[in-house]
């Protein structure tokens, strides 16, 4: 569940601290890119994220992020009744979220090219 997530306050290993910061920075980006492919059931989205190897994050990180994205207006939710359990909350990218994602993609491309050619 926790993957290799460790809060910087808890780890004295510089590499661990660095990976934590990288993952935190990328998490929002990943969520928006994932939702750009189509709406997703919240529980499934969380399960995907908690099992993503190097990028895995705990539920304690993902759910607050999803709530924040919704409050910010970057994602929208709607409920779908289900015969197999509680009503399912589906997440999708809002128009504003799409704009943000476009900006993030451009920035990401720029970062990648800088990293590939530091000179």
């Amino acid at each position: 569940m926790q993957g290799i997530f460790m809060s910087p306050a808890r780890s004295s290993d510089p590499f661990d601290n660095w990976t934590v910061q990288v993952r935190k920075g990328l998490l929002e980006f990943w969520v928006l890119r994932r939702l750009a492919r189509g709406e997703c059931y919240g529980y499934d989205l969380v399960k995907e994220l908690t099992q993503m190897g190097s990028l895995s994050m705990s539920e304690g990180t993902v759910y607050p992020l999803l709530s924040r994205l919704r409050v910010q207006g970057w994602v929208e939710t709607h409920l779908v009744e289900s015969n197999e359990g509680p009503a399912r909350k589906y997440y999708r990218l809002s128009a504003e979220g799409q704009q943000q994602l476009t900006s993030m993609n451009c920035y990401w491309d720029e970062l990648q090219s800088l990293l590939e050619d530091p000179s």
Binding site: Y43, V46, E59, K89
Partner: peptide, 9 residues
Amino acid sequence: NVNNHISAA
């Protein structure tokens, strides 16, 4: 979200 997660799990 957490409440629903518990129910879904």
